[in-house]
């Protein structure tokens, strides 16, 4: 019952989950991000999808990400494009090159806006948004 209450109170967009991506979201809930890897050629890809664009295999497995990455770019948002984020402004969003060679876009915390820079080392962390949804965030490494 309390779970239902918190779901109702959560006012930010929820990801429309699909079969290809479920293991990714499940891994966030476990606070242990996993990335999709081609089971044939080994290429890691993100966001999750059914075909490897290197060898066209549809066989996948999932590997634990190191959680280490470097800032590729960022923005600091001052305008609420969704009412759910009104209380979060200004909000820092970083595009991060993960060590595994793919990127993640997520909010970054514990850093002053004027300290953000390309190549800055960060680590992934997790925020439990609801009982059903955990989102990745970044903090300085």
């Amino acid at each position: 019952m309390s779970d239902t209450m918190s779901e109702t109170a959560y006012d930010k967009p929820m990801p429309p989950l699909n079969r290809d991506s479920k293991p990714f979201w499940d891994s966030l809930k476990e606070h242990a991000m996993r990335l999709q890897r081609c089971a044939d050629c080994g290429k890691i890809r993100h966001y999750p999808r059914p075909v490897c664009d290197s060898c066209y295999s549809m066989e996948v497995d999932w590997v634990r990400a190191s959680g280490r990455g470097k800032i590729h770019s960022w923005t600091i948002t001052h305008h609420a494009f969704h009412p759910g984020f009104l209380g979060d402004l200004p909000m820092m969003l970083a595009t991060v090159d993960l060590e595994e060679g793919v990127r993640i876009c997520a909010q970054i915390r514990d850093v002053a806006p004027d300290q953000l820079s390309v190549g800055m080392a960060v680590r992934v962390d997790y925020e439990d948004a609801t009982a059903a949804l955990t989102l990745p965030i970044f903090r300085p490494a």
Binding site: P16, Y47, H72, F81, H82, F85, L93, A106, L135
Partner: peptide, 29 residues
């Protein structure tokens, strides 16, 4: 769809934000 699943939940929602990452990268490079 992919932005809807992987970026909008974190707050990266509208074109001015999505394109700001491009512009910031251009400025830094």
């Amino acid at each position: 769809r992919t932005i809807g699943e992987y970026e909008m939940p974190s707050g990266n929602i509208a074109p001015p934000q999505l394109y700001a990452h491009m512009a910031r990268r251009h400025m830094e490079m």
